[in-house]
Amino acid sequence: MVNLVIVSHSARLAEGVKELAGSMIDGDVTIIAVGGIAEGDDYRLGTDPMRIHAALEEVWSEAGVLLLVDLGSAVLSATLALDFLTPEQRATCLISNAPLVEGAVIAALEAGLGHSLEEVNQAAEATAQFEKIPRSLNSY
């Protein structure tokens, strides 16, 4: 099954997204949260390519890994982390364009259903167009 790596500037945000997305899984999907930059016993805000790379090594499988990222340097660090992989590993890793929370929740569900990396990512990215409050429905 496709596994997920959650990349956020905030360690607590990444863990929270992992917790929520993890509640959607019916299957053998692994989610790793990589948030913040280690500083002593704690984390400060930021993203760390080496920790993202370590997470990718840990969860990589032939089915693939989808990376869900927040903004800015999360994308850069994730891209850098991919460059450390072997070409074989790199070929089945994808950085999703999805919004972090919605994308991770949907990706976890889809991955657990055994869908392919492309299908999981498509479902996650569809959340960008998702209307939380559909205007077309009656309002009661």
């Binding site: 949907i106 569900l109 479902a123 569809a126 959340t127 998702f130 209307e131 559909p134 429905l137």
Partner: peptide, 9 residues
Amino acid sequence: SILQLMQIQ
């Protein structure tokens, strides 16, 4: 589709 299900509110 969970997104479609959420949209029927």
